[in-house]
Design a protein around this nucleic acid. Structure first.
Lengths: 341, 341
DNA sequence: ATGAAAGCGCTAACAG
DNA sequence: CTGTTAGCGCTTTCAT
């Protein structure tokens, strides 16, 4: 049998509650007793039983990271890893553990998540990338544990979220292209069922409108942030006559796909066509040519979400102290949109 | 208060044990009763309490993925995300959840992991990347839950592991370079405290030796798989006189770093220098020039590890049915080692 | 096929 | 400062 707290108590000649107090660093324990208990713990190599603790204390020191994406698409883009990394940093500091909650591939009926709903398992959750997924949103509102969302969601305003300033970031990007002299600027947008997709497109429109330019329908193609969708979108754009002189892809991965399509069509970037992205994933700087993009601080986003959530959990309040956090983006100019003339 | 199994039992007019049987799909329950219980569960939106279940059943349906790396370095390389993805696929199929167990940054004293040692929390664990970390290895041997390691470890042969054929993969790579006519082949190795690092280096030596060529000390630089270490190593190699005509980096990220260093020194790849990597991460194909490398099936590696572990867990045996799995690698020839003459 | 009863290992009032 | 006493919500023999 495994050794229990009772064994420790017996060995140290105290009651189980005192042993528990020592284990949990409660004050008001006689230093000598405290030391005796610790000694027993060390001697026996005692390890507390986690489920028993959570059951009795109603706290698990575990949060879930919910990623509502098909698993196979999960890590094609370094976005999620970076986000997880940020969350993990804060969790480690605060002695919290992380459960990874990925949507099952078979999203046929009912609950595509395993943990969601399991009572007592999670002290809180972070939902990454606010897809407007009906099941998830319903769960969010019904849920009793603290949940924060990464990425703005429009439908449930009461849920705290953390986001970057997608709209203004995209706007700055287009303004930069306009300053460079580009006038026929196309965009490959993100998915329109994600607010980030809509917001970046809105920024694109903002800048054009402010410059007195129209938003041309044929220059706007919807993608889904993946490389493949960028490739496809660019092939469509290449049908335009005249061709766009610049393309703003709403993610770096789509920009990469677009670059390949442009190359395949015999176009050079940036000579024949300017190309820019959004995210500033590590690949962006390594590409040839290095990609002009909008940096979003993904790691910090994760950190903010984790801080918000953990503060909330420890406050034991119904609402978090901070409801929303919006982080700034930064325009990173590289060679992919350098006019040669 | 949350609704409990007792509430369900009362509502369905049965005892708690019967309700439990229904919940767990035990046979030998009257169909009519079964339906009444399910109805009550649905009506009340009942969700079982996970800690209570694990405490009573001594099973948690959770496995841990232990990644013994400083968090901040975690996702610079897509290796871990891909591995996690593979593991997650199998876990989802089998209704297991995943805990992410990252080493805390402050690896000062004692246990740098939170979950390791928490009794009853994990049904098993996968240790990713077999660093020969003293603490971890001691834990592995002492541990009572099933643990499988990704990457061969030499010191504790009793621990089941899953690995790719690093040595033969590296050998094939060097053989290819030799066939291309390269003769002064340098290597940037992985860390020598990881078996994968040693194995790839061994494969390099195998090929040279078989070809009757010596392993030249100054052409062997130790890296740590990171881009930065590749960069530094290449700077050292650039001091050699004569320069190597080919460089085999033991990871694609190091190859990327090496490429940058070579470029910075005014060398062109592959004209002045052949460069090859190991891993075949997505970036390898996207680089300019596309990188010749050795593909290791990272996702499958994760899947194999997960299958081995979950089979073991469900068998309830002391040893797994399969002790070791070794997956083949594949040479992927691209442009980075194309001789121009 | 079902119920009674005994824990699983721990925390947390409460009393002293 | 410490011990006693109840549970936390569920699974699981053991009867019946």
């Amino acid at each position: 049998m495994n050794i229990t707290l009772d064994d420790i108590a017996r060995r140290a000649g105290v009651s189980r509650s005192t042993a528990s107090r020592v284990l949990n660093n409660h004050p008001h324990v006689n230093p000598a007793v405290r030391e005796r208990v610790w000694q027993a713990i060390r001697d026996t190599n005692y390890q507390p039983n986690h489920p028993a603790r959570s059951l009795a204390s109603r706290r698990s020191q575990v949060i879930g990271i919910v990623i509502p994406q098909p698993i196979n698409a999960l890590f094609a883009d370094p976005y999620f890893p970076l986000l997880i990394e940020g969350i993990a940093q804060i969790c480690n500091e605060r002695q919290f553990s992380i459960m990874l909650e990925l949507a099952t591939t078979t999203t046929t009926d009912g609950n595509p998540y395993r943990l969601i709903g399991q009572r007592g398992f999670l002290d809180g959750a972070i939902v990454a990338s606010a897809v407007e997924d009906e099941f998830l949103l319903q769960w969010l509102t019904r849920e009793t544990i603290p949940v924060v969302v990464v990425g703005r969601i429009t439908s449930h305003t009461s849920i705290p979220y953390v986001d970057v300033d997608n709209r203004y970031g995209a706007q700055k990007m287009i303004e930069h292209l306009l300053e460079q002299g580009y006038r026929r600027i196309a965009t490959i947008t993100g998915p329109m069922n994600i607010v980030a997709g809509r917001d970046r497109f809105a920024g694109y429109c903002d800048a054009l409108t402010a410059a007195g330019l129209p938003v041309v329908h044929e220059l706007v193609i919807e993608g889904n942030f993946s490389e493949q969708s960028g490739y496809n979108a660019m092939r469509t754009l290449l049908q335009c006559d005249p061709l766009p002189d610049a393309v703003f892809a709403a993610s770096d991965m789509m920009a990469l796909g677009a670059l390949k399509a442009a190359r395949a069509a015999g176009l050079d970037v940036p000579t024949d066509l300017a190309l820019t992205g959004f995210d500033d994933i590590p690949l962006a700087a390594a590409m040839t040519p290095p990609l002009t993009t909008v940096r979003q601080p993904i790691g910090e986003l994760g950190q903010s979400a984790a801080r918000l959530l953990l503060d909330w959990i420890s406050s034991a309040a119904t609402q978090p102290a901070v409801q929303q956090v919006v982080l700034p983006t930064e325009l990173i100019v590289r060679d992919s949109c350098t006019r040669s003339w």
